[in-house]
């Protein structure tokens, strides 16, 4: 069975999504809602990483339970810069591009959860299925957030 592989892939993609969300947060510190919400929901992906690492052991994969990369010095500089650049209109366009990116990444993770859930069901791995059922809705909420925020921000960024 290739369940271990699927878990490993999801562990990687959730880690990546968390990093993307944190990076978007850092880039848009002057857009306060984006700054805070992106951090809050990056936490969901980080929790998924931990849960995947825990269950991975049952399927013979050894995964790091510690989510990658809390912001370091570079990110702090990015936050300060975004604060300073907050007076210019271009960040609005950059935000649209970033939200689009988050949506695509989250959509990828969502598909990964779909795959894992299907496999878990087929292999009758109850605990793994429950994990997917618990985590996948968070991913869908991350996607919906990116979509809704994009919809809300697009007009002013493009028309003004």
């Amino acid at each position: 069975m290739k369940l271990g592989l699927a878990i490993e892939e999801l562990h990687r993609s959730e880690n990546h999504l968390a990093r993307v969300l944190l990076a978007v947060s850092d880039r848009h510190k002057a857009d306060h809602e984006v700054f805070y919400v992106a951090r809050d929901i990056a936490g969901w992906s980080q929790r998924h990483v931990q849960e995947l690492a825990r269950i991975g052991a049952d399927f013979g994969v050894d995964l790091d339970p510690e989510p990658e990369g809390e912001p370091g010095i570079l990110e702090k500089i990015q936050q300060a810069t975004s604060d300073l650049l907050g007076r210019r209109p271009e960040p609005g366009l950059l935000l649209l591009a970033d939200l689009r990116h988050v949506h695509r990444e989250a959509a990828g993770v969502s598909l990964d959860w779909e795959l894992l859930a299907q496999a878990a069901q087929g292999a009758r791995k109850r605990e793994l299925l429950e994990l997917a059922e618990r985590c996948h809705p968070d991913t869908l909420r991350q996607m919906r957030w990116a979509n809704a925020k994009l919809k809300e921000s697009a007009t002013q960024a493009l028309v003004s």
């Binding site: 002057a30 857009d31 306060h32 809602e33 907050g86 007076r87 210019r88 209109p89 960040p91 609005g92 919809k151 809300e152 007009t155 002013q156 003004s160």
Partner: peptide, 19 residues
């Protein structure tokens, strides 16, 4: 009606960025 009417905190943000 393309989105909910802009809330106050966002209006001040738009004023800050100059739009």
């Amino acid at each position: 009606h393309y989105s909910p009417p802009t809330h106050a905190m966002q209006m001040f943000r738009y004023a800050e960025e100059g739009s």
